[in-house]
Design a protein around this nucleic acid. Sequence first.
DNA 1: CCTAAGAGTCTGCGGTGAGA
DNA 2: TCTCACCGCAGACTCTTAGG
Length: 280
Amino acid sequence: MTLSPREKKDLTNWQKGYEGELHFDELTRPFESTFLLLQDLLLKNHSTTFQVDTLLITPNKNYLFEIKNYEGDYVHDDDKFYHLPQSEILNPLHQLQRANALLGQLLTRHGITTPFESYLIFIHPHFTLYQAPQHPSIIYPTQLSSFLRKISPASNPLKGHHRKLADTLTTLHDPNPVLPDLPAYSFDSLQKGIYCLQCSSCSIALKGRSMYCEKCGHIEEFSAAVLRNALEFKQLFPSNRITSTSIYEWCGEIGTPRRIRTVLEKHFAIKGRKRGTYYV
DNA sequence: CCTAAGAGTCTGCGGTGAGA
DNA sequence: TCTCACCGCAGACTCTTAGG
């Protein structure tokens, strides 16, 4: 669908944020084997919901990380952050302090009083902050690798209370993510077709058993592409039934309904018989 | 070249809805 | 309310083709 400029901006921001978290996940992967690493926690203290990007539990210290994938030029002035040339953004330090405070209160209510060291991580290599404050909680891109190196492997192992902390947080985590305000869409209003997995173009041609991207040359099995689209259909239209014709239409009437049916039969459970058959 | 998996074709079943 | 044409689907069978 065609997005409005505002929606495009939101989409870019979400993508950027997500990419930043993925990047940080990569950097903290070595810690997984020795420490407890919790990512993307959605927690609730009384009626206040808050999100925690990454929590790292080590034998010596617990860390709370807020990841920001800001790119380009920013300025810090009078306790405020601006994206140059002039738009003010939410102060990420305040977000970090809020998450830390709420996390502390939540854990205290569950009988855990362990402190967390909280850090604001600016992860994008092309991030510049003019008049950058020398704040002990801020880690700039050029400091990141040395900062992570300092979280050295501890000589003493994790104990029961560390696991209890992780278990408590995992139990308190709300698995239903808060969805951003999505633009209104319907089946009829969206462009149908299979897009290329590699370059996202819609210039896809069916050649034998494969889908061939005329733009980048990427080849994907027909069945894999249909399955991908069927899962996408399920995500976008949870109340719509998956039928061979609905997916055939959703895929831009590529192949034949019979071929689509074969793919659905293989990857989904069939409900009903004859007319009215659908897949779950 | 052979084999097996996948795709195409044909036929019949069952639900739906229009018209008598 | 009943009948019948139409549509969407499954199942059986045949054909095709990718990959070893």
